[in-house]
Design a protein around this nucleic acid. Structure first.
Lengths: 220, 220
DNA sequence: GCAAAAGTGTTGGGGTTACACCCATGG
DNA sequence: CCATGGGTGTAACCCCAACACTTTTGC
């Protein structure tokens, strides 16, 4: 028995210099065979915080990802079978580590697939609007949120981090200034490891020092 | 005929150096005779943007105030008669100009009254949580939002503006630095008018130049 | 004249911007 | 040896924080 509202999850990632969003192909009416952001009805006695994890898992196969509430959407005509309110959530995940795990558990979705944010298919319901709202949120919370680093591999190069910032902000940044700033932040740990398999000078790898991050951000 | 979700309005104001929130005394069960933030059910075919104005007017007598969506709240136990999701909205209004107009239109509320944010009565439902979330939002959006100035009279002194910032940020600010910063903003218009009825040097009055505000903020 | 708040500048430090070349690696 | 991205410093400027006294007014 479920309630009369749904949860939809905007799951963003970063690959190839562009932001990616995880979409699912619907296997049920309405909007059968359309791409949509993963979502479903909340159970009657289920807290939203629990529902969002369950639904994300059932629709995409992904587990244990951290989601933030984005907004409620309740346009009278957003759902063809009568108004259904949805609460949208936003999550960041790193592309590579979960690539192979993406597969709907529920038969409600046929498949799940990444799409570049600039090259989306037609979307079910008002899901385009929801995605656009997510991008605005991302722009505002950049650099205040550890979850930004969920978008990158655990070990990343400074160039990857810069490309991510550029993709979010929609403008190019100066390499030297970017690195200077990164240094002053104090919560990026340089590793004694380097990129592999590239046909040019291998870049140093870094990782987020979560301890220090929370110390620094907690105060600022 | 209404839907199965409600809208609740956090209406903030500023008077006497402290933030104030407008609460309504409930005249119906559940939580009859309790103080609550004004809210009610959305009609089945009513857009949220319309509902929020209607509900605000019916419960408080206030019209034409601008509201922003804050978040959805849907705790299983938040409503004693079964889970009811609410979408909370946030508005700022200036205290003096609407003091006399505050009176519920609907009999669903007995009265509406301002409370200092630091001295709230027990509240119905999860309304305390909703108010606390509003204050967090206010802190984050300070100085980016023209609606901040809805909290002040149309003509205000720089000291009033400073006290408002201090109330929101929860710390004192340096007078000279504050004024210097205000000057650089470029969207506060000094008037050729002064405070009246004070027993000390009368302060110059200012008002927000909305034209310039949108020019400046639109770019930054 | 006194109480109460208005109004006003300067300095030092920290952060941001603009800008260009050499280095290491794989093919 | 060439193509590709990795990595590095300095100077000008702007913004922010710290700090105290004089002015105006009503009573």
């Amino acid at each position: 028995m479920h309630s009369q509202f749904t949860i939809d999850c905007v799951i963003l990632s970063f690959d190839n210099g562009t932001l990616q969003v995880l979409l699912t192909e619907r296997n049920e009416y309405p909007y059968k065979d359309w791409w949509s952001i993963p979502g479903y009805f909340v159970d009657k006695y289920e807290e939203m915080e629990d529902a969002v994890y369950r639904i994300c898992h059932e629709m995409t196969g992904l587990k244990n990802i951290y989601m933030d509430q984005l907004a409620a959407f309740a346009g009278v005509k957003r759902h063809p079978e009568g108004r259904i309110l949805t609460v949208a959530y936003l999550a960041f995940v790193q592309y590579d580590s979960i690539k192979s795990k993406i597969k709907p558990v529920s038969t409600y979705m046929k498949q799940a697939k990444w799409f570049a944010i600039n090259d989306l298919p037609d979307l079910a319901f008002d899901h385009l609007e929801i995605i656009n709202k997510s991008l605005g949120r991302l722009k505002n919370t950049i650099s205040y949120s550890a979850s930004l680093y969920e978008l990158l591999p655990e070990k990343f190069t400074l160039t990857q981090l810069q490309l991510l910032h550029e993709a979010i902000l929609g403008k190019t940044l100066d390499k030297r200034n970017f690195r200077k700033k990164i240094n002053t932040l104090g919560y990026l740990k340089p590793l004694d490891e380097y990129q592999k398999g590239v046909s040019y000078r291998a870049a140093k790898l870094y990782k987020l020092d979560k301890r220090k991050f929370h110390k620094v951000i907690g105060q600022g």
